[in-house]
Design a protein around this nucleic acid. Structure first.
Length: 166
DNA sequence: GCCAACGTTGGC
DNA sequence: GCCAACGTTGGC
């Protein structure tokens, strides 16, 4: 079995949320090599995903929260798996956490690279109106988790709604 | 800007 | 170990 097909078998799909005023898909598009660390996650369930489950090659939907229009603006790929979130050690960072010990880091991040910025965002309203996406975790009431697993069917449906083939 | 839902903290 | 108080998230 070829290594590439092993990777594909194990590849997972995710949705990462961000407030665009803090970090938007355009910030990522303008970053060097269109690659950036996904930092500042300070929730244990999301941390566990980043530390234990998100792997190089995994595909990620980029979701803008809080500011209209809400929705998915494109996709990313993981290029570096979980490592210590250095912003936790920086007292000038808004993500500083004095209780995170560099020798035993509490918070983790991954590196992402831009794959596609959708020609038009797949808005929350579109996700709500489509049978294949209305049940996504991100659509559930009270769901605040910023790192969420996505099924392959949901991944495909989002790309169909975006009007692009994967 | 409001506020429901949620996660975390800390007194007991 | 419970749970009230608090701070944050994020849709509306």
């Amino acid at each position: 079995m070829k290594a590439s097909s092993v990777a594909e078998q194990n590849m997972r799909y995710w949705l990462f949320k961000s407030e665009p005023s803090t970090f938007s898909i355009d910030h990522l598009a303008k970053a060097a090599r269109q690659t950036a660390p996904w930092d500042g996650v300070r929730n244990y369930q999301a941390r566990n995903f980043l530390r234990d489950d998100v792997n190089v090659g995994d595909q990620v939907l980029f979701y803008h929260s809080r500011e209209e229009p809400l929705g998915i603006f494109g996709s990313m790929r993981i290029v570096k798996s979980g490592y210590a979130d250095f912003t936790a050690f920086d007292s000038r960072s808004k993500y500083y956490d004095a209780s995170s010990d560099p020798d035993q880091p509490r918070w983790f991040m991954v590196d992402v690279t831009l794959v596609t910025k959708f020609p038009n965002p797949v808005t929350r309203d579109m996700l709500k109106d489509d049978e294949a996406t209305s049940g996504m975790l991100v659509m559930k009431r009270g769901m605040r988790l910023s790192i969420q697993p996505v099924t392959h069917d949901e991944w495909k449906a989002v790309h169909r709604l975006a009007g692009i083939s994967e």
